[in-house]
Design a protein around this nucleic acid. Structure first.
Lengths: 159, 159
DNA sequence: AGCATGAGTTGTATTTGCCAACCATTGCCG
DNA sequence: CGGCAATGGTTGGCAAATACAACTCATGCT
């Protein structure tokens, strides 16, 4: 045991929460966050569910993509995506353009109206996030964002 | 403006994303994470859904609590909690002890069996997290954990 | 005693998601 | 060329999770 303490002292140079504790915390906090996200989203934007919002946002920032891509990106079943897109289309938020090169694929795009609604929701979401993050300094925000991206990328790689 | 650039150059030594970009990233990554968490959890542990797991874990580490507390803590409707607990009880994972002081409340506890299952799931979740975080150094883990806790605490305060 | 409050349950409807079966298009290989 | 596997997408059927509302029962205050 003494060796561990010494090791930490020499190589870490401060009392360091053990690796396991950090992992434990990350696990718990990520889980708690996941549990709440949907509820929060639903309360904030009854007009556009979290999933719809996410898909629409993805279309917007990819400048159009295929249903299959959406499914892969968000680990959703293709049937789920199909229905979600159908719903968004009925609302007039997305349109389909059949790919001239391959008539199986339809490239999805937000409509003008869709982009509008998306912009509204995004703005209000962003404001909520800003409030939540108001007392963070710039460097912390940046680091936090970087960690999240890194974490999600790892999850994407490992499944 | 020059000062900003210089400041960044000197203190950060690389082009720094604007505050808004960080917030945007955090928002997107948290959302993506939330979207995937349930699916991942379901794939890993068919025997215990993310919600059940979360509730059971909370009972375990609070050494028992009331259904209402669970609902408040996870932004769930009390009916939802009621049914989830009923399911967990039917599986023999939790037991109810009526509070002798107030016959309205039932204090929930994991059973022996429940604690056992919880331990298994926790262990395997923890391993998955460890894999995902394997190439992170200790300091980054610690900082990431701290950010997450801070973020969630803020969300808890602000709704 | 009487009524408001709080804890939980149950009925009902909606949303979300999965799986499997299916259709249409494409591209490849014999 | 002709069949066949692979790909993109839709649809039907189903189960789980959840919200909302109406209800019951115990408590506690006036």
């Amino acid at each position: 045991m003494l060796y561990v303490v010494l090791y930490n002292y020499i190589y870490e140079r401060q009392p360091v929460p053990h690796r396991d504790d950090s992992v434990e915390t990350i696990q718990q906090e990520m889980t708690a966050f996941a549990r709440r996200a949907r509820a929060t989203a639903a309360r904030m934007h009854p007009e556009l569910s979290l999933v719809s919002y996410t898909l629409l946002a993805h279309l917007d920032d990819q400048r159009g993509c295929r249903a299959t891509d959406l499914a892969a990106h968000y680990f959703l079943d293709k049937s789920t995506v199909s229905r979600q897109i159908a719903a968004l289309e009925k609302l007039g938020f997305v349109e389909r353009r059949v790919d001239p090169d391959d008539h199986r694929v339809q490239v999805l795009h937000p409509t003008e109206k869709g982009a509008q609604v998306l912009a509204n929701v995004t703005a209000s979401r962003r404001q909520a996030f800003h409030e939540r993050l108001a007392d963070w300094d710039e460097a912390d925000l940046d680091r936090f964002a970087t960690y999240l991206r890194r974490y999600n990328a790892a999850q994407e790689r490992l499944g």
